[in-house]
Write a protein that binds this DNA or RNA. Sequence first.
DNA 1: CTTGTCAGGTTGTCCGACAGATTTAGATGA
DNA 2: TCATCTAAATCTGTCGGACAACCTGACAAG
Lengths: 227, 227
Amino acid sequence: MARLAADISSGRLAPGARLPTEQALTEALGVSRTVVREAVAALRADGLVVTRRGSGAYVAEQPAGPFRIAAPRTSVLSDILDVMELRLAVEVEAAALAAERSNRAEVGAIRNAWRAIDGALRKGEGAVAEDFAFHRAIAEATGNSQFPRFLTFLGSHVIPRQSVRLSVDTSAERRAYLERIQHEHERIVAGISHRDPAEARRAMREHLTRSLERYRKLAEGEKHGRG
Amino acid sequence: MARLAADISSGRLAPGARLPTEQALTEALGVSRTVVREAVAALRADGLVVTRRGSGAYVAEQPAGPFRIAAPRTSVLSDILDVMELRLAVEVEAAALAAERSNRAEVGAIRNAWRAIDGALRKGEGAVAEDFAFHRAIAEATGNSQFPRFLTFLGSHVIPRQSVRLSVDTSAERRAYLERIQHEHERIVAGISHRDPAEARRAMREHLTRSLERYRKLAEGEKHGRG
DNA sequence: CTTGTCAGGTTGTCCGACAGATTTAGATGA
DNA sequence: TCATCTAAATCTGTCGGACAACCTGACAAG
């Protein structure tokens, strides 16, 4: 399967070209047809090949595999930072687009998400899920479905590690930190509801930049402290 | 396969939970084991489940599927615009990061890519590949590998349709358009090599915004003209 | 309580077979 | 000579059975 994928993405197998038949692959690779079928099934799932019953398997016209992010095992802190930078790029623009295009209902959804964070903080909870829902509401308000989709994708790779950061703080520090975050959120909401893209952009950028810097310091400490 | 994927992403099957055995699924769904195996293989390829030989199949701890973009059949013009907006968000930030962090070699690579476009234009070619290589060189110069990876992914979904835009112009218009593009590129290069993130950001934003606006007008014309 | 053994269950792979669909070559006719 | 139909040959999709490798839990022995 890896071999076929390499042949395709490298261009050795041109788009539209016909793959060897399953029987030919069986003989060439010395494995059973079951294994060959499973391999081309994986390629088809990634959109790299299309199969036509009775005819054969062909390289897709636009061989565009999905976008993946390295598995957790290779996700050292520096990789997380890279993903967070990508997230910053997307969210900063999303805030500006939301300020330009959001309708009343979408602004209301953002406000509700903000209040949900407030409620969680009052109960002394971490509000990780609420925080993500807030950012997601902004992405929804862009009117561009790719933004919330991509943000959800990135979130599933970054969110699980946010708890690490929180655990190092004491309870008092943690509370102060969360309240400052909420204040940053407030400024973003103001920028969007005032239809001020530049302000929304600035506020979101500062918010995420601070988050990124905190994480970067943590990464430095980790590097010097343990490894 | 769709049913299992829905059960997982909706949370009905909690992370770490064990899937029904292949035999159980064959009986429940009324299909052979071959089909069941192909379905769970697709899920495993997407990272939603992990299988352990002799034990069973389990929902992944962090069920994070890959990021896909709708297949070409649903890619009407408005979808392309959505993807282009996402690309704008990423590239604008990439230009700024490149201005901050790029080393001499990376700036040289960007310059070479720019000259390659120039050469293609002089030969009267379209320079689509060279244009993409230029943007990719900037993404590389961020030092964040996620940027070029994501840009390549987006490019494979957007690039194939750029030729549509060019084909509507006459030869003279086309030449003037390409030279204006190249002038915009020049400004981006200047911003990056002068280590001016704000200017690089502005230049890239204007460059891509214009491209987006052109495409948007085309979409409007398409909508009113044909359908 | 720990360790070794064993039986049952589960996934990974192999094999053979057939149905559905496509392609190709040959036959047929004008 | 060319077009058209037909039948055979391929090829993928699915089915069923089988065995190996492996894991799990129970049970007996120490």
